[in-house]
Design a protein around this nucleic acid. Sequence first.
DNA 1: GTAGGGTTAG
Length: 662
Amino acid sequence: MEVVPSVYGNRFPPIFCLTSTRTIKNYPPAIAISPVATAANPTSTTTHSEIQNGPIYATGRSGKSLSVSSTIRQSAMLDIQQSTDLTSALSRSGEVLKAQDFNVILRHFGKSNRWKDISQLFDWMQHYGKTNIASYSSYMKFMGRRLNPLTVLEIYNSIKDKSIRNSVSICNSVLNCLVKSGKFDSSLKLFNQMKQDGLMPDIVTYSTLLVGCAKVKDGYTKALELVQEIKSSGLHLDSITYGTLISVCASNNRCEEAENYFEQIKSEGHAPNVFHYSSLLNAYAIDGNYRKADELIREMKSAGVELNKVILTTLLKVYVKGGLFDRSRELLVELQRLGYAGDEMPYCLLMDGLAKSGKLKEARLVFDEMKQNEVRNDGYSYSIMISALCRSGFLEDAKQLACEFEAKYDKYDVVILNTMLCAYCRTGEMENVMKMMKKMDESAISPDWNTFHILIKYFSKEKLYLLAFRTMEDMHRKGHEPEEDLCSSLIYYLGKTGAHTEAFSVYNMLRYSKKTTCKALHEKILHILVAGGLLKDAYVVVKDNAKFLSRAALRKFSTSFMKRGNMNLINDVLKSIHGSGYKIDQEIFHMAISRYIQQPDKNALLLHLLQWMPGQGYAVDSSTRSLILKHSHLFGRELIMELLSKQYMVLKTNKSREGKTK
DNA sequence: GTAGGGTTAG
């Protein structure tokens, strides 16, 4: 395959080299624009209240000049909001404005989805110290998922004022950004750090973190821990937190617990709201419990809670999961009638359910109908159809749909790209695979766990083991943990093709991941390392995992090490395998001692070995003994005789012990 | 004059 080296070049850079989303701007020095040093420079002696409220005007100013100042500020704000050239508007009108004025503009940009302007304005505000607590929270809120979590952390860490850093709304916003971008573990770590630094978390902090529990394995346990923490810190679960908890239960297959929380709301004298209902409904979707779902809908009707788009869409999910495809279709028609079928979601639910119960043709019909209905397309429906076609082996059809999506929509996210990658990998079209990877890189879409898995599997299938290895390295660097089976097979193939070092590298990725590795893997890598002559690495494996290794493998390793391993480590190796309970046999001692004799400058090591042996119940056999005696002049004859006689005593006691046991 | 949290899809 020619394509691979040409795409990667010879140096094998990281598979995906995403460009940083945040650029450092070179603004003129603050002092040149703003003469007000306190407002311009946040690292100066500015107090918290000044940062929050802007420079405090001297008392005694007339009401008139205040209103003049407010008029000037109003027009400056308008200038910036309406300007088509933000840079010049800021240098023209920015000086007179305070942090809260900029926050108004920030929100204005936010409401009109002017992402680029929000970023530029916020950069400017940061540079001139015109930020307060609300600025940070608003910025993160309006940028939402557009913000790279690393950028968010950078911003957070740039806040030097402790009272601002510890402010609960800023902390909540930062945690929210991390949770929304799937970095739940990082958010928990940061949360603990924040608490140590002095954050007093409130119920919003906890419900922010609870959202993350819905997306991770074992999230329910973590949620319980958080609930415990809420209670022990004297806070109370509020309506939103209950809603989050129910949704955590739903996404962790805890239907009964979801019901319990729902009942708890009622027993505390509150009426469940539409969020609570939709989350509980979603819990019923897990096993398609349409009876309970129908009952819940009746309850909603009598309670006067509106059956909104989310509720009806979730109900559709329940019907689909319950296999009630006719009722699902009826409900879809109802959604269309109500104007609730403007985006793909309900179609996706139905298509996916049909495809997964083997009704691929019917799924395709829904897909075609959706396309006729001018539904907004975000690529989900294509993902579903393409992967359904792939699963059933209709690779050509899958490829065709992928091409259709490329031609019709130039909009990609990680899922559609993964799906298309998968389709092209299955049909073995390297050129298209590379095209998708380039697209991912260009659109700054970070590859996820799935992307890496698809690629590594594909490269392995094409016998491009080194490329698979580089991809796995990249995956590891990006913090994704590959599945053990995938590693294990890659280790096998790398070993088989002589890439012993690379095989060991994959082994180490697994070993130092959080998961515990399968015991057989240690033996597998040991064989590869011994075969590749990487005896020092092999020794590391043996030292750490001797208890998982078979006697045969240990023997093979020791034999090789005695023959070719580093002489300075021979005694360590012998002690280490003895320490693991392996009885060293005479042949091994003979090999070790022969090596020492060949190299008289290592005589200290030989003497050390001979000294060590009797203490562990070992003694050299007669052939090794005569070998030593033959060369004893090299080591000091007297000392050697003394050591050998000590060993002889051991030999005698061993023999007499053996005799007694017989 | 001010900020932060919840429901559905691959």
